[in-house]
Nucleic acid binder design. Sequence first.
DNA 1: CTACATTTAATGTAGGTACATATATTTGTT
DNA 2: AACAAATATATGTACCTACATTAAATGTAG
Lengths: 166, 166
Amino acid sequence: MTLEEHIHQRSFPSERIKLMLHVQLVARQIVAVTRKVLTPYGLTPQQYNVLRILRGQRGQAMAVQSLAERMVDPSSNASRLLDKLEAKVLVKRTVCPQDRRRADVVITKKGHALLDTLDGIIPPSMESITSSITENKAEQLNADLDILLNACDDIIEKNTTQTQSK
Amino acid sequence: MTLEEHIHQRSFPSERIKLMLHVQLVARQIVAVTRKVLTPYGLTPQQYNVLRILRGQRGQAMAVQSLAERMVDPSSNASRLLDKLEAKVLVKRTVCPQDRRRADVVITKKGHALLDTLDGIIPPSMESITSSITENKAEQLNADLDILLNACDDIIEKNTTQTQSK
DNA sequence: CTACATTTAATGTAGGTACATATATTTGTT
DNA sequence: AACAAATATATGTACCTACATTAAATGTAG
């Protein structure tokens, strides 16, 4: 299904406006695919993302804040995602002894085992979405997306930073 | 900020895997921009989307279902979005006389007025995100996104339709 | 060493998504 | 006419996001 078929719209003011909607729809479908794959394992895409970040620490504990910074979402809800992962015994939070405001977060053995299983499933799903796209093509697309990303960041900061000249 | 800077990740297994994350992040930032613009007007991006679809009907009432089909989201929450828009007197729902299960939804005069104001704000924001992208480039990107969209749809349907051979 | 600001995480609130279920109404069948 | 099946919308639940606020711990200036 094309974008036009998805949202029952025949035409767009411009290819650039269409592109804005297109990116949103494709992102949604990518998430839908990962959700479908993860559901049997009781994880949501966001929870999976957190687990993967923690595994990337290779055993080192991580503060909630630095975890949040690595998430795909700007995210203020890392705490609540951790609540759910902790309830499933996939991560463990302990108070950091050096700075008792902080929480040291680590992935558990059970979390590792789950990720090991998912390694054989999620990356292949992502590869299969992009099966008709060459690495060169993907590289080009990534470059173009970086341009859009920068433009968005500029607009967002323009409004945020305006009264920060203190 | 590049994708790498955003999520504090230096490298990716492949450009294609990176592309999957990249699309998600850019989509999120596009929504963030529209949210920032809409907030002063008391609308969310989703509510704005609904209003625009209703305006596209040019006065003709619309069933909730066909509205939902045109939304960027697969959406089962059109009802609840309409609740909020109705509370703000931006849309009106009446029971359809021909089929009393249905709700006839129309945009109100107040809704029209709000959209008229936003016409001068939202499309320019979207244009400015894409200011470094030519129409030709955008057309190419749209073609590539269609490929990804199709691949996602295939995977999603593969699992949905499998037991529907009754 | 106390007073105040800053930092880290957690929590409150309002909105949204996805999937399942409920309710009302119409349609189709006998 | 009676009743099952289908349809249109609404609602329930669990999860998520965005933004603001709170609570506890730490840093710092007097």
